[in-house]
C-alpha cells in the first residue's frame, strides 16, 4: 500500500490539513485537492445512506470513497464530523489495514485538536501533528 496524500477536512467540508507525499509540488496538491473534494460527495452519500435504513449507526471507517484511474480515496469520519481522507496508489489495499491506519491518523488528529491553543475547525498548523502524520505514513511509502 502506497499512501500518497493525507488530508483532514472540517465540518464545513473545508480543508484543515493537506499533505502530499509525492514530489510533485503544487500540481500534485492541486490534483489531490480535486480528488479529495470529489470524494466528499461519496462521504455524504455514505453518511446519509444509513439513515434511510432505520437509523443504523454510521461506522467511522467509510471504506473506499472514490476510485480514479490512478488512485483510490479512502475515508474515515469522526463523531464530530471531521473527515480524514487518505489517497492510496494501490488497488490492492485491504480494508483492515486501512482501518488501522485511520485509527492512528485519528489519534494524531485528536492529540492535535486537544491543544488548548487550537481553535476548532481551523487549519491544523501544528508541526507536531505534521511530523506525526509523516512518521506514521512515510514508512509505508
Amino acid at each position: 500500500m502506497v499512501l500518497v496524500c493525507a488530508s483532514v477536512v472540517g465540518r464545513a467540508n473545508n480543508p484543515l490539513y493537506f499533505r502530499s507525499f509525492l514530489p510533485g509540488g503544487d500540481a500534485e496538491i492541486l490534483k489531490f485537492q480535486y480528488i479529495v473534494h470529489c470524494a466528499l460527495d461519496a462521504v455524504e452519500e455514505k453518511v446519509t445512506a444509513p439513515q434511510r435504513r432505520s437509523g443504523a449507526a454510521v461506522e467511522s471507517y467509510l471504506g473506499l470513497l472514490y476510485p480514479t484511474e490512478d488512485y483510490r480515496v479512502y475515508g474515515y469520519i469522526s463523531n464530530t464530523r471531521i473527515k480524514l481522507m487518505l489517497i492510496v496508489d494501490d488497488h490492492m489495499a485491504r480494508d483492515e489495514e486501512m482501518r488501522q491506519v485511520f485509527k492512528k491518523f485519528h489519534q494524531a488528529y485528536v492529540d492535535a485538536a486537544s491543544n488548548p491553543f487550537y481553535t476548532a475547525n481551523t487549519p491544523l498548523t501544528s508541526k507536531r501533528f505534521d511530523s506525526t502524520v509523516t512518521a506514521m505514513l512515510t514508512p509505508r511509502t
Binding site: A12, N13, N14, P15, D26, I29, L30, Q33, Y34, H37
Partner: peptide, 10 residues
C-alpha cells in the same frame, strides 16, 4: 462551487 470554501489550490 469552490469560492469561499478554502480549497485554495483549486
Amino acid at each position: 462551487l469552490y469560492e469561499g470554501r478554502h480549497w485554495a489550490f483549486i
